[in-house]
Design a protein around this nucleic acid. Structure first.
Length: 485
RNA sequence: GGCGGCGUACCCAAGUGGCUAAGGGAGAGGUCUGCAAAACCUUUAUGCAGCGGUUCAAAUCCGCUCGCCGCCUCCA
């Protein structure tokens, strides 16, 4: 398995520190507001990485943190007129609501910064003792100049950074690039006791404390959005390696941004959509599929049009499942041998799983993996067109369904029945018909068709179509589905 | 200014040295159908921003040019 490592700038063969075990730390969110679709991307990417690692047989320990104390939370509390911890609690709950809907699983450990104050203080003390940090006026800073590898992740030269620094120069810092490990708290702000007086942790130190505590001093994969690369991850490396004297994370994995009109989606530009807004218009599976249909490191341009295309793709999957299910309703002809088409299809089926794994093994290429899935879907449809019948043919189609489900589980898509999919679409599309109205209309139309009253039959079809319901006439019955696209 | 990335059909998107450049969406034509829908078939890139170079061989490597974006400040 190959993973692109930001630290080395190339794809590398993945070798875990401990055979068969993978330890992953992904930077979570600061719980001060609703999550936008960019947060969803990061969460989904690492959810898939974790699922695939598990599928490969690794014993995975996945840690994803919550930053529950920070300036933004404090400001938000003032705005909303509630306490800072109430803000954290509220938006943690909202986060879970969003992630549950998107099919993002819980991490094995979900630590919070405020639950690791003791560990944080321990590391800061250690850094001061080792000469990597200094106290100024009850705050503690990390001395970047003392750490020789500073800049190795973001490929930055310290001198250049200092020269072009846009950072406000804090006179108390020895070097403008030094960053706060511990911040003295102002009157009325949340604070914790420390050897340097009342204060709270800086942003970067919590991730070092939590990852070291839950995964050890060295672990396999550390990830997050590409915007965390600098300074967050760079600082994490500096303080962690300075403290432990050992290499920190081995593989650094960063997901790309979501853009709108080619520009990065961000709070400050105001060009963002919250997960909730998007899920009002699209099924969660559509969002997930859409985000996985581009490689995780590439930017994704977000638009309703693209989501609609994703919806059509998923519908193609469910339509095929309906066809396969219809096939199983038919009687087994008892024929023992393959049909001609069966032999061809079997070959493709046998190679599918390998191709899927090959794609995922190559730096989690979900876009290519989805391509293989749709190739299988096309071949399955082609096979079905060739009127399969015998028990061997049945086995093939059963295997097809199994493989699609198995690969679907890894991406956490294609997990529902077609009926559930259509019901969900009905809700989202706000189609003003109940599941009972439709069969009623279908019965009416069937009666008309029987007396060859095509005019009435077509009128009913048209009436339903205008409401977004498509009727499909089959040999012995009429099925319905929701119009997509 | 420094560092990094991107530019593949009408749209989205894989592919980073070698079979006919995946897959999805959209359009056109066809098969099937009472009519449809779905599905399938055919079709839409002798070409991968442009120019030059390396090579038996390049979308893929190198150089230059053009265009777009990101990071360098909180940010997934």
């Amino acid at each position: 398995m190959k993973i692109y490592n930001t630290l080395t700038g190339r794809k590398e063969e993945f070798v875990p520190l401990i055979p068969n075990k993978v330890k992953i730390y992904a930077c979570g969110v600061t719980v001060y507001d609703h999550c936008h679709i960019g947060h969803a991307r990061s969460a989904i990417v690492f959810d898939v990485i974790r699922r695939y690692m598990r599928y490969k047989g690794f014993d995975v320990k996945y840690v994803r943190n919550f930053t529950d104390i920070d300036d933004k939370i404090i400001n938000r509390a003032k705005q909303e007129g509630i306490t800072w911890d109430a803000v954290a609690k509220k938006y943690t709950a909202e986060y879970y609501k969003d992630m549950d809907r998107l099919g993002v699983g819980r991490a094995d450990v979900e630590p919070k910064a405020t639950e690791h104050i003791e560990e944080i203080i321990g590391i800061i003390k250690g850094l001061i003792e080792k000469g990597y940090a200094y106290e100024v006026d009850s705050s503690v800073y990390f001395s970047v100049a003392k750490f020789p590898g500073y800049g190795k992740l973001s490929k930055r030269d310290m001198e250049e950074m200092t020269a072009g620094a846009r950072v406000e120069v804090d006179e108390r810092k020895k070097n403008p690039l030094d960053f706060a490990l511990w911040k003295k708290s102002k009157e009325g702000e949340p604070s914790w006791e420390s050897p340097w007086g009342l204060g709270r942790p800086g942003w970067h130190i919590e991730c070092s404390a939590m990852s070291i505590k839950h995964l050890g001093e060295s672990f396999d994969i550390h990830g997050g959005g590409a915007d965390l690369l600098f300074p967050h991850h760079e600082n994490e490396i500096a303080q962690s390696e300075a403290f432990t004297g050992r290499p920190f994370a081995r593989y650094w994995v960063h997901n790309g941004f979501i853009t709108i009109d080619k520009e990065k989606m961000s709070k400050s530009l105001g060009n963002f959509f919250t997960i909730k807004e998007v899920l009002d218009k699209f099924d969660p599976e559509v969002v997930r599929f859409f985000l996985l249909s581009t490689h995780y490191r590439s930017p994704v341009e977000f638009s309703d049009e693209q989501l609609r295309e994703a919806e059509s793709s998923i519908d193609r999957y469910y339509s095929t499942i309906v066809r396969i299910n219809d096939f199983f309703e038919k009687e087994d002809s008892g024929k023992e041998e393959f049909s001609n088409a069966g032999e061809i299809f079997e070959g493709l089926l046998l190679s599918f799983q390998e191709k899927f794994k090959e794609a995922m093994d190559d730096d989690f290429n979900t876009a290519l993996a989805l391509g293989h899935i749709f190739e299988l879907i096309r071949e399955a449809n082609r096979f079905l067109d060739n009127k399969p019948s015998g028990s061997k043919d049945r086995e093939l189609l059963l295997k097809t369904k199994e493989l699609l489900r198995e690969t679907g589980i890894i991406l956490n898509i294609f997990g529902r029945t077609p009926y559930e999919w259509y019901l969900s679409l009905m809700k989202i599309r706000k189609i003003g018909l109940s599941e009972k109205d439709i069969p009623e209309k279908i019965r009416e139309r069937q009666a008309a068709r029987q007396r060859k009253d095509w005019h009435t039959a077509d009128a009913i079809r048209k009436e339903l179509e205008e409401k977004g319901i498509i009727l499909e006439d089959k040999k012995d019955r009429t099925d319905w589905k929701v119009k997509v696209g």
